[in-house]
Each structure stands twice: as C-alpha cells, then as structure tokens.
Simulated assay, not measured.
Amino acid sequence: MSGKIVNLSRVRKTRAREDKRRRGDENAAKFGRSKVERALQDARAEKDTAHLDAHKRDGTDEE
C-alpha cells in the first residue's frame, strides 16, 4: 500500500478555484460584451450627447 499522500484542504481549495473560474467564464460568455460592442455603444452615446447639445437653447432669451 504505497499511495500518494494528498492534502485534502489543498484539493478542496483547488476544486473550489476551478469551479469559480468555470462559473466566471460561463457568465462572461453569457452576459459579457465584446470590445466592438462596447466601442459601438460608446460611440452611439457620444453621438446622442452631441446631438442633444446641438439643440440646447441658450440661457439668454430676449423678450
């Protein structure tokens, strides 16, 4: 009976780390956005802001 001695605490921690990484990868694939999608959303937001700013009225209304 010459088996390898295993530290059970280390095995549990390693398994927990692997499970956490696997869940994180699944969530990234499920909910994450690609770099192109983020850039597109940022560009659209900037364009919308510029469009709204172009239609602002000045505070100097003459009556």
Rank of each mutant, 00 (worst) to 15 (best):
S2D: 08
G3Q: 06
K4L: 12
I5P: 01
I5C: 04
V6N: 09
V6S: 00
N7L: 13
L8T: 04
L8H: 13
V11R: 11
R12H: 04
K13S: 11
K13A: 09
K13V: 01
K13F: 13
K13L: 09
R15L: 05
R15V: 07
R15E: 10
R17I: 04
D19C: 07
K20M: 05
R21I: 05
G24A: 14
D25E: 14
E26T: 04
A29K: 15
A29I: 12
K30V: 01
K30L: 03
K30M: 06
F31A: 03
F31P: 06
R33D: 03
R33Y: 09
S34P: 00
K35T: 13
V36E: 15
V36L: 08
A39S: 12
A39Y: 01
A39C: 06
A39R: 09
A39N: 10
D42H: 08
R44K: 14
R44V: 05
A45I: 10
E46I: 08
E46K: 10
E46T: 12
K47N: 09
D48S: 06
T49I: 13
T49K: 15
A50Y: 11
L52S: 02
L52Q: 06
D53I: 11
A54W: 07
A54P: 00
A54M: 13
A54V: 01
H55K: 15
H55N: 10
H55M: 11
G59A: 14
G59P: 01
G59N: 06
T60H: 05
T60L: 10
T60W: 07
D61H: 00
D61G: 01
E62G: 00
E62Q: 04
E62W: 00
E62N: 08
E63N: 05
